[in-house]
Amino acid sequence: MEGLRVADADLVVYIHPSKANKIKQAVLRQLSSALLFQFNENFDGVVLAYDEQFQSNKAKITPGIVPNLGVKLKAKLLLFSPKPDMLLEGKVVKLGKESIHVIVLGFSSAAITFEDIREEFKYKTKHGESVFASMSHKRHVIKVGSMIRFLVKSFDEEILHISGSLIPPHTGCIRWLYRHTIEEVSQLDRSLKKQREKDLEVEMQEQDTQVDAAFTSSIHRHKSKRKRTAEES
Rank of each mutant, 00 (worst) to 15 (best):
D208E: 15
H161K: 11
E184P: 01
L48H: 01
L192E: 13
V144L: 08
V92K: 04
L78P: 01
V71H: 00
L28P: 00
D199F: 02
I100E: 07
R226S: 09
S224M: 05
N57F: 02
E41Q: 10
K138W: 04
K94S: 15
F39C: 00
G45V: 03
P63R: 13
Q38W: 02
L177D: 10
G96V: 02
S233R: 13
E2M: 08
A214F: 08
E183I: 04
A75M: 04
E157P: 01
F39Y: 14
R179F: 15
I23L: 11
S81Y: 06
Q25F: 00
I142L: 02
T125D: 13
K72L: 01
V102N: 04
R139M: 14
S108F: 08
F37R: 09
F150Y: 08
E120A: 03
K194V: 08
E41R: 04
S136R: 10
I65H: 07
F43Q: 07
V104K: 03
T181L: 09
A111E: 15
S154F: 02
A213C: 03
A75S: 14
I219T: 03
N40D: 11
L28D: 00
T113N: 11
K19I: 00
F114M: 07
I142C: 01
F39E: 04
R228G: 05
V6K: 10
D212Y: 03
E203D: 12
F80Y: 06
K198D: 11
L73Y: 05
I117C: 02
N68Q: 10
H137N: 13
H222C: 07
G172V: 08
E2P: 12
F80L: 03
L95Y: 04
L31V: 02
R118P: 13
E232Q: 15
E201F: 03
A34Q: 09
E232V: 15
H170T: 11
N68W: 00
A214G: 04
P169M: 00
F155P: 01
Q38A: 07
V13L: 02
H222V: 09
L4A: 01
V144G: 09
R196N: 10
N68F: 07
P63H: 04
K193S: 13
L177E: 11
C173K: 06
H140T: 07
Q205E: 14
L151F: 03
S18N: 14
S136C: 04
S218F: 13
D116R: 13
